[in-house]
Structure formats: C-alpha cells, structure tokens
C-alpha cells in the first residue's frame, strides 16, 4: 500500500471515533451506520489530496463527515437497497448506551439535522470557536443556538413524559 494511503488510514484510525459519533447521530441502525461510515471515508479520501492542513484535521473531518451525513444519507441508504450489501465481515455492533439515556437519545433523534450537529459537537466537548469553524457560524451564534437546542430538548422530554 502506498505511503499516502497508509497516512490516510492512520488519520482515519486516529479520528475514527469522530466519524462514528457523526454516524451514530445521523443513523438509527448498524447497517446505516456502517454504510455512512464507508461513504464518509470515500468523501474524505476524495478530499485528502486537496486538504491543505490550514485547519485542524479534526475540524476538516467533522466538516466532511457532517456534509456527507446531512446531504448523502438518503442516497447512501437508497444505494444499499438497490445494490447487494458488501459483506465485510466486520465484528462491530451499534453501541448500547444505558437505558436511562434512551428518552434523551430519542429526543435528539427528533431534532432536525442542524440541531443534531450542534448537539454532536457539544457532546464531543468542542469549544464554541471550533464549533463555529466547523458549522460556519459566529462564536456568539453557537452559544445562542446551543441554548435554544437545550431548551428544545427539555420541551421534547417533558412532552414525552
């Protein structure tokens, strides 16, 4: 395998948790999760040669992953339905989180794509500055929007009770 390919795989290996977090946030089952992960890898590889490393690697990876998750997910699922799933024999399962987090996770699933992106970055403990860089909004806007999303989640949780 060529050096560039090895470097790329090292990068994916180091930051794969980030990609898994995006996949978990935007998919509801293991198959979709795996397919989205693979699609994100395709998009990252396509952009890797042009990545000028002016921003942090994680910022770039978040941008590409979120872009792919929001704009490609329907196509990714449709493609799997149209074509036989590639059997990679991966020993992987969707993480099972504590059951008391289930209502909160269900409420997050009911948020729209943009709100979910804010929650995702907040859960990954990104600073407002990094969130702003990834999402393309101002730092102050991040705070306002995060508070709004938190309120929305509270309302959803109350209405579910």
């Amino acid at each position: 395998m060529a050096n560039t390919e090895e470097e790329f795989l090292d990068l994916i290996d180091q930051h794969q948790k980030l990609i898994h977090n995006v996949c978990r946030m935007y998919t509801g089952n293991v198959d979709d999760h795996q397919d989205l992960f693979q699609e994100i890898m395709v998009q990252l590889w396509k952009g890797y040669a042009n990545f000028e490393k002016r921003s942090k690697v994680s910022t770039w990876m978040y941008r590409v992953s979120l872009y792919t998750a929001i704009s490609h997910i329907k196509r990714v699922i449709k493609q799997r339905e149209a074509q036989p799933h590639l059997d990679l024999d991966l020993d992987y399962e969707q993480p099972s989180l504590e059951s008391d987090s289930a209502p909160l996770q269900e409420a997050i699933e009911r948020l729209d794509d943009g709100d979910r992106a804010i929650v995702l970055l907040h859960l990954d403990e990104k600073s407002y500055k990094e969130m702003a860089e990834i999402l393309g909004i101002s730092d102050s806007n991040v705070g306002v929007r995060l508070n709004r999303v938190k309120k929305k989640l509270k309302t959803l949780l109350i209405s579910e009770k």
Binding site: F8, L9, Q16, K17, H20, Q38, Y92, L123, E125, L153
Partner: peptide, 28 residues
C-alpha cells in the same frame, strides 16, 4: 446532555486497523 456526554466518551466504538484497511480497499 452532560451525563450523555460522559457515556459517549466512555463508549468504545471502533474498527480495527485491518477492518479499516478492508473498507478502504474494498469500498473507498
């Protein structure tokens, strides 16, 4: 959300290096 943050930070979701290589070769 803060509690969920801790749970997610603790969760171990990852592909092995050989699985990543397989995805890269067969799909990417």
């Amino acid at each position: 959300l803060e509690e969920l943050k801790e749970q997610i930070a603790d969760s171990q979701v990852s592909y092995s290096r050989s699985e990543l290589k397989e995805i890269f070769t067969l799909r990417t």
